[in-house]
Design a protein around this nucleic acid. Structure first.
Ligand SMILES: [Mn+2]
Ligand SMILES: [Mn+2]
Ligand SMILES: [Zn+2]
Ligand SMILES: [Zn+2]
Lengths: 143, 143
DNA sequence: CCGATAGCAAGAACTATTCTAAATTCACGC
DNA sequence: GCGTGAATTTAGAATAGTTCTTGCTATCGG
């Protein structure tokens, strides 16, 4: 995924401020820690369950808020397969996802070295790409 | 998107039947006609509104049913950007989608000739890909 | 410490989609 | 052209992941 600038405008002036720092609260730190600890592309609810070990009073809404904050500050990527619950991935390298229909496991899929998207796709003239999502589905043949 | 075999198994035997034909009802035909007539990746609700011109009594649930049937029989592709409402595309060539943030327009994006996904992606060993989804977001620079 | 801003928790609300149940249409053998 | 069973349609209810609202708490700069 390419970087997305997270601009905020002050309510008073309407002038663009610096992109604000992410305040690392206990909840956000724990959500992020959980994502790094087990990189299996958990859903928000999965994260909620895992975070409760360390923060038993955290709410699901807070998990959603934390995930949104982490995504907006480009520490975490949101991964959507069709209309299933969103999943979250702390791998910041440009990569796609392969969903194994048999096991449900989602594998990270890297580009082969030296490949750029503009090399393989016939983009509209003047297109500036800000975000790339590559989602594959299939099976892992056991042969 | 790669072809997805739509196998049905008879309830009695559990033996695989032929993939059943899509029965072209008035509703399905009209939904399909609307998709072909204006290829702007409409949502189910967009389709509903357009189909009502020809079939004023059609229900939204039927539009969903028809779209699902068309997708399952590989006449139409479902296109999902993040968690926005699904959109529908009758272009059966293998292609991705570019969402222009400024205009909201979704453009079809073809692969450059001769490119295969396995050539550019580092797939897991033994992966058999059944479905490919490539979604881009960005802007069209006017320069 | 003070006032302001940001974040959290709990539950309600939202909304795209799916499900339910009853009515209608259809395919097909006679 | 019927009768019959299966498929489809319809309207409305239900579902479920996510977002919003509200009141409270934590944090920050001074
Ligand atoms: Mn898809
Ligand atoms: Mn995305
Ligand atoms: Zn990933
Ligand atoms: Zn398309």
């Amino acid at each position: 995924m390419l970087a997305k600038p997270s601009i905020k405008r002050s309510a008073n002036t309407g002038i663009a401020d610096e992109p604000s720092e992410l305040r690392m609260t206990r909840q956000r730190r724990e959500v992020y820690r959980v994502l790094l600890a087990q990189r299996d592309h958990p859903t928000a609810y999965d994260v909620f369950m895992r975070v409760k070990d360390g923060l038993p009073h955290i709410s699901l809404a807070t998990v959603y808020n934390c995930l949104e904050a982490l995504v907006e500050h480009d520490l975490v990527r949101q991964v959507n397969f069709d209309r299933e619950p969103s999943r979250y991935c702390p791998n910041l390298e440009e990569h796609g996802h392969f969903h194994d229909r048999d096991t449900g496991v989602i594998h990270d899929v890297k580009f082969k070295p030296g490949i750029k998207l503009a090399d393989v796709l016939d983009l509209p003239h003047g297109a500036v790409i800000q975000d790339v999502e590559i989602n594959l589905r299939g099976q892992l043949s056991l042969a």
